[in-house]
Amino acid sequence: MSTSTIRTAQAEVDRPAARPGAAVTIRGAEKVFSLGRGRTLQALAEVDLEIAEGEFVAIIGPSGCGKSTVLRLAAGLDTPTNGAIEVFGDDPHRLAKQHRLGVAFQEHALLPWASVRANIALPFQVAGRRVDKARVDELIQLVGLVGFEDARPKQLSGGMRQRASIARALALSPDLLLLDEPFGALDAVTRRRMNAELARIWGEEKITTILVTHDVDEALILADRVVVMTGRPGRIRKIAKVDFPRPRGFETTRSPEFHDLVDELTALLDQVEGVDD
């Protein structure tokens, strides 16, 4: 973990307020949902995961394996039934209260009555800060929505909405970025471009990021570590370290090492899905 220590040191220089060490600590987290009439559904079983500050972690797994639940725990939207979760050494929802959290949800969750610009400006307003127009414009440009600033979500394609949602998550330069399959609705070309953009943003800002995805390539292009989860109840099957040099361009994705890792993780996912069925 020498690379991540160096990165942590850099992050400390950038943000002196943040604590060193782990950004997200999940210890023995279980999540059981009540379905009513005494029936329950166990979404997570004993998940242990530590994410260093400035680290990019991707979580992959079959659908319904509790990937999103992990994200919701980190966001403070759910609490674990058993076990504990700490974000920057504190209760997860404390981070949200301090306006240091960015989340892009699976369903874009843009406000339908507000324009793209107004949606991206929302975090500033909610935080009671003056809207940084230059930052909003920069984000619009970043996610390729120039010319659509005044469009409302229903006038946009699915991919555009997703991009606006990512821009909203980035608006306040959060300390923790949670992405729940944000590129799921995008076509392959846009998806690759968004991956490259996200890698670039992450390279610049070193935001601690958790990405939930079902795309192994995407996980390997972006993440420092890839967490493979099993089917319900969700457990961590394997944590793979990804050491490819950044930026991970075509040389990386075409390399045999990359393909080996893709094959290995895909095989693991297939196995996991087989068990689930």
Binding site: A75, K97, F105, A109
Partner: peptide, 8 residues
């Protein structure tokens, strides 16, 4: 949820 994670 969006408003919650934004610390509204």
């Amino acid at each position: 949820d969006v408003l919650t994670v934004l610390g509204s």
